[in-house]
């Protein structure tokens, strides 16, 4: 089964456009090996599969193909410093503020294969007092990806990406050639399909992670998504964005706060344009109250293959039994 030159050229083009990854002539084997499982799943030969892809121009399918071709950039504890800020400052603050409630609620809003919500869960498992519980809602568009995430199983290569060794041995277990997130940590996370273009899940959340996903939406959509998030965030909760992202210029309803070596965003009682609009506790109305149109597209956002900005992590788990 050999890929035709046209098929290769088409795949190389969509990959280049979506991810800036260059597939030069000579990489035909690569495309073949990556697309073969997808073609087989569709009951097709590779060229047939690529032809159908080209004809249908279905954004979801194209995304899947691009994802199959590009490096898996999903790492654990991505960017490092936000998790340090959670561990050292933000979670202790929330614990003190929620003592009466006894529970923290977190929403990981583009959870992909699960590394992000599990990273948060592991951090909470280390830091929460026994009297506090945590529930992490992890959502993504793709049910396929959620299935993987629910299993909590990762290859050694995936686990090598950003997982501190101490966390690995504490919160994961070897299963065959793979590693699996330990049951108590998995129990903290609920995976659910959700489209960011739809109404947000019922809040209020103490922490929302919306990292490295807004980049693929246009400005009005970004504002609409941020507005939905704002409405389900506790007034003293926090929004975490990706390392190179900001609400500045996009949505007036957040205040950037420096915590440790990172920034968090606290919700304000105004909407995207700055008009007074307190947060809504409970399911938000289906129609936009702010005049920002809610598009009814169901196009899946393309998950980025961006290189995370390297940052310095000042604190790490001390090695057991040793002073540093």
């Amino acid at each position: 089964m050999t890929l035709s030159a046209e098929s290769f050229a088409y795949v190389a083009e969509i990959v280049r456009r979506r991810s800036a990854i260059q597939l030069d002539v000579g990489k035909e084997y690569l495309v073949e090996s990556r697309l073969l499982p997808l073609a087989r799943a569709a009951g097709q030969e590779i060229d047939e599969f690529v032809d159908a892809l080209r004809r249908r121009q279905d954004p979801g399918e194209i995304t899947r193909v691009v994802e199959a071709m590009t490096t898996n950039e999903t790492s654990w504890f991505r960017d490092g410093v936000p998790y340090v800020a959670l561990r050292e400052t933000e979670v202790p603050r929330l614990v003190a503020a929620r003592r009466g409630v006894g529970r923290l609620r977190v929403w990981s809003a583009a959870c992909s294969t699960g590394q992000e919500p599990y990273s948060v869960a592991m951090t909470l498992a280390d830091v929460l007092p026994p009297s506090m519980q945590a529930h992490i809602l992890a959502t993504d568009l793709s049910e396929q990806v959620l299935e993987r995430a629910r299993s909590g199983r990762y290859s050694q290569l995936e686990v090598n990406r950003g997982m501190p060794a101490g966390m690995l041995v504490t919160h994961m277990e070897r299963v065959g050639t793979e590693w699996q997130v330990a049951q108590p940590v998995r129990d903290m996370v609920e995976f659910r399909a959700h489209n960011l273009l739809d109404a947000a899940p019922a809040g209020p959340f103490d922490l929302v992670l919306l990292r490295n996903v807004l980049i693929y939406f246009d400005m009005p959509t970004k504002a609409a998504i941020l507005e939905r998030v704002r409405r389900v965030l506790h007034p003293d909760g926090a929004l975490m964005l990706g390392a190179a992202e900001t609400t500045l210029g996009v949505h007036e309803g957040f205040e950037r706060v420096s915590v440790g070596r990172t920034s968090l965003y606290r919700p304000l009682a105004v909407d995207a344009s700055g008009a007074p609009a307190p947060a809504v506790v409970g399911p938000p109305p289906a129609a936009a109250a702010t005049g920002v149109p809610l598009p009814r597209r169901t196009a899946a956002p393309v998950l980025p293959a961006t290189t995370p900005t390297p940052g310095r992590v000042t604190s790490t788990l001390p090695p057991r039994g040793a002073t540093r």
Binding site: Y29, L30, E32, S33, R34, M69, T71, N72
Partner: peptide
């Protein structure tokens, strides 16, 4: 990981 870069060519 070691031979082909992040994408594998082993079939």
């Amino acid at each position: 990981a070691m031979v082909d870069g992040d994408l594998g060519l082993l079939l």
